[in-house]
Design a protein around this nucleic acid. Structure first.
Lengths: 229, 229
DNA sequence: TTTTAAAGATAGTCATACTATCATTAATAA
DNA sequence: TTATTAATGATAGTATGACTATCTTTAAAA
């Protein structure tokens, strides 16, 4: 018998997002796992707590003990993703001194389809990445955005934006729009992907449908404005 | 008594979007008018045909005679906006020979809060602009995007993208990503506005909250990559 | 062994997204 | 003018979604 050593990555989530911490119980982790699967498969609009409950083999009321409503659950898994991604970025750009290389690496990480991270048991990052692409902006494009923001629900996204903004400033301390450029990179990494696969004539990647082309576009866009005379 | 001359702007809409043409009847025009008001006020999620019917003074069934469901109605008014905007752009850049000036003008038009166009009676473009900002991407960020695309529902958006892409190519025939840059301009003109007003720390416009700053950012972004050595 | 927390089971409320039907009104054609 | 048809009004009804409430069972901790 072999003893397995496994470093489990735990992400600390905003307590206001849930009624009962889903990380702490089997049912809770099942809720996260199956909601990621269902939202990725059917889209957020068609996703209901009833279907989720059936999928898990529990009841609707059981889900409501963890999450107030499906919007909170969406914000939860999306916030989780941004936190995880920020960790990935800090990990993968560790020891990189050249900020230009760092920024390039970040763009690649943002625009590349993620593989499932085996350090997180119940979360399939590859599915989550697809959710971010098609549902990500629905987290904040609501009338409650102000309320949700007061609860700090968007902190992971803001933190990521801030990290990227700082790397941009390292590249060029005089650049005037580090945060707006950061959100542009994040949003466009995902929108161009969505367009490429669903409305290809809105992009220049219709033929190849290659993520690498999106990365080239973003690099060209970012480095022309950040690095110049 | 004075005879008023008024040029009424009529936009030809995709027939598949409606069951009965709303432009042709009083009730139809009321549906458009009031849905724009209600969606702008309460957001698309909270918008229902029942509320719309009550607002107009008709019944739910009455609305269903014009639109299959609220998503089609959303696509309708958004498609209308893109068509109207393309007309505005062609009008306002008419006789401008310098493509750089043309592109600058386009960026300004995209990022500036619209005033109500008195050539369109039942449509309040200023409200529509706010809808585009917070609900615009919900038109296509769905699982039915493929089906809707087959119906050509996104043609006005694509046409606008194509127009802007061509101006970009006029500026620099060698530029490799005219369409992706066009969608980036369009989406960012609206997302930066939304962020500025709702999640300001995601932008560099939090202090002033001025659209003019968004325009400066977009100009800087676009012209650095389009025009260079 | 007692207490408590979590989960299961079931029921019920209210709103939303529709569909169906029949009567009324207004415009148009014979 | 009347007959016909198109649009609307009025009303009802179904299925589903988004919850809330309550009661019982199970499992873990004190």
């Amino acid at each position: 018998m072999q003893i397995e050593m496994k470093l489990l990555l735990q992400i600390k989530m905003n307590e206001d997002l849930f009624l009962r911490n889903p990380e702490h119980t089997v049912l809770g982790r099942n809720i996260i796992k199956h909601s990621i699967q269902l939202i990725a498969q059917f889209g957020f609009e068609a996703f209901t707590f009833k279907k989720l409950a059936e999928d898990i083999g529990t009841t609707e009321a059981g889900i409501y003990r963890y999450f107030e409503n499906k919007h909170r659950l969406l914000i939860y898994i999306i916030a989780w993703y941004w936190s995880w991604l920020e960790y990935q970025i800090s990990f993968q750009t560790n020891n990189v001194t050249d900020p230009l290389i760092k920024l390039k690496k970040i763009i690649t990480l943002l625009a590349t389809t993620v593989e499932d991270d085996t350090n997180t048991n119940h979360v399939d990052e590859s599915l989550l990445h697809r959710i971010i692409i098609s549902e990500g902006s629905k987290a904040y494009l609501t009338k409650q955005v102000g309320e949700d923001n007061k609860h700090q629900f968007f902190k992971p996204y803001k933190d990521l934006c801030s990290v990227i903004g700082n790397v941009i400033l390292e590249c060029n301390p005089k650049y005037k729009y580090p945060r707006s450029l950061a959100t542009t990179i994040i949003e466009m990494a995902h929108f161009q992907n969505f367009f490429m696969n669903n409305l290809p004539s809105l992009t220049d990647f219709g033929k190849n449908k290659a993520e690498s082309d999106i990365i080239l576009f973003l690099n060209e866009l970012v480095f022309s404005s950040v690095v110049k005379g």
